[in-house]
């Protein structure tokens, strides 16, 4: 059997995590084929519907990464992202998307090793969970 290669969508903030990811890519820290990067202007821009859409279109995991608290270029976009993340994770898990498939992280521009570490960790977690197919073939968890 061939090894399952999870598809991870990463929404990365233009000012920080995207820079980190770029550097990580240059130094080959990350297994590139697993990750599709989407550059956003602020983690606060990543509406829950983007995340849900990513899963619905076949992502096995979604990472949203932004600047550390206090460093957001739009004052508190990252806090906005933080507020949403818990409720979103809960909704996702009720719909059969396990908690580990969705992560919100703070990664500064200089932290490319951290980016690589988190990403590799996530790829492994998601690989262990297997493909995400939150459609009807899969029993749902339902309850809160």
């Amino acid at each position: 059997m061939t090894r399952f290669e999870p598809k991870i969508i990463a929404f990365l903030c233009n000012w920080c995590s995207y820079v980190a990811a770029d550097a990580a890519g240059v130094s080959r820290f990350v297994q590139k084929p697993n990750v599709r990067v989407i550059r956003v202007f602020c983690s606060g821009m990543v509406d829950p519907s983007y995340v849900i859409k990513a899963f619905a279109s076949g992502a096995d995991g979604v990472l949203v990464a932004g600047c550390h608290p206090g460093d957001c270029h739009y004052l508190a976009g990252n806090i906005k992202a933080l507020r949403r993340s818990f409720l979103l994770r809960k909704l996702l898990s009720e719909l059969g998307v396990e908690e580990k498939r969705f992560r919100l992280e703070w990664i500064a521009a200089s932290e490319s090793p951290l980016y690589a570490k988190l990403m590799n960790e996530m790829i492994e977690d998601v690989r262990n969970l297997g493909p995400c197919m939150p459609s009807s073939q899969k029993p749902l968890k339902g309850v809160a």
Binding site: D47, S49, K53, R83, R84, F86, L87
Partner: peptide, 14 residues
């Protein structure tokens, strides 16, 4: 609205 759940998550958490 794209997905009512997503919309409510963002409305409520804000």
């Amino acid at each position: 609205v794209f997905d009512p759940g997503a919309k409510m998550v963002s409305a409520v958490s804000s």
